[in-house]
Amino acid sequence: MMTFKTPLAGLAFAAVAGGTAAANPDHDLGRNLFTDNAFMPCSACHALADAGAEGAVGPDLDVFAPTIDQVRVAVTSGIGIMPAFSEDLSEEEIEAISAYVAAATGSAVPQEGASDLAETPGGADAS
């Protein structure tokens, strides 16, 4: 009976470890999309020191420090004058950008209710 526990435990560990690795978006892809997206790079409108971006149309992401969830919602659905990119970017690309921005600003932990983006830094109403 003991012979089954080790292989099953190993399989369970491999599944968990594999799932974790697969859930981590590619940060290089996120950075490249942020700076060089052929359609409209995020850096055209947003400042982000890690990317060398100095856009001034949208919020300075270093100051705003959005969470993964906030970036995902904004990129997917748009907010304020920012258009939605759900038809131009794949889910993988949106996840990569979201994870990259949150990691670059130190806000990589998803938070409940983070999709509420009604107020941006400086009190500007984004709706």
Rank of each mutant, 00 (worst) to 15 (best):
residue 33 L to R: 11
residue 35 T to K: 13
residue 35 T to H: 02
residue 35 T to R: 10
residue 36 D to M: 13
residue 37 N to P: 04
residue 38 A to P: 07
residue 41 P to W: 10
residue 43 S to P: 06
residue 45 C to E: 01
residue 46 H to C: 14
residue 46 H to Q: 07
residue 46 H to K: 12
residue 48 L to R: 05
residue 48 L to Y: 07
residue 48 L to Q: 03
residue 49 A to N: 14
residue 49 A to M: 09
residue 49 A to K: 15
residue 50 D to T: 15
residue 50 D to C: 04
residue 51 A to R: 10
residue 51 A to S: 15
residue 53 A to F: 02
residue 54 E to S: 14
residue 54 E to T: 12
residue 55 G to H: 08
residue 56 A to E: 14
residue 57 V to A: 08
residue 57 V to R: 03
residue 57 V to C: 01
residue 58 G to H: 02
residue 59 P to L: 10
residue 60 D to V: 12
residue 61 L to S: 07
residue 62 D to C: 05
residue 62 D to E: 01
residue 62 D to M: 07
residue 63 V to C: 11
residue 64 F to A: 15
residue 65 A to H: 00
residue 66 P to L: 08
residue 69 D to L: 06
residue 70 Q to M: 15
residue 70 Q to C: 08
residue 71 V to N: 04
residue 71 V to C: 03
residue 71 V to H: 02
residue 74 A to D: 02
residue 74 A to K: 12
residue 74 A to E: 00
residue 74 A to Y: 06
residue 74 A to W: 03
residue 76 T to L: 01
residue 77 S to F: 09
residue 77 S to L: 09
residue 78 G to H: 07
residue 78 G to K: 05
residue 78 G to Y: 04
residue 78 G to T: 04
residue 79 I to A: 06
residue 81 I to Q: 07
residue 82 M to E: 02
residue 83 P to M: 08
residue 86 S to C: 02
residue 87 E to S: 02
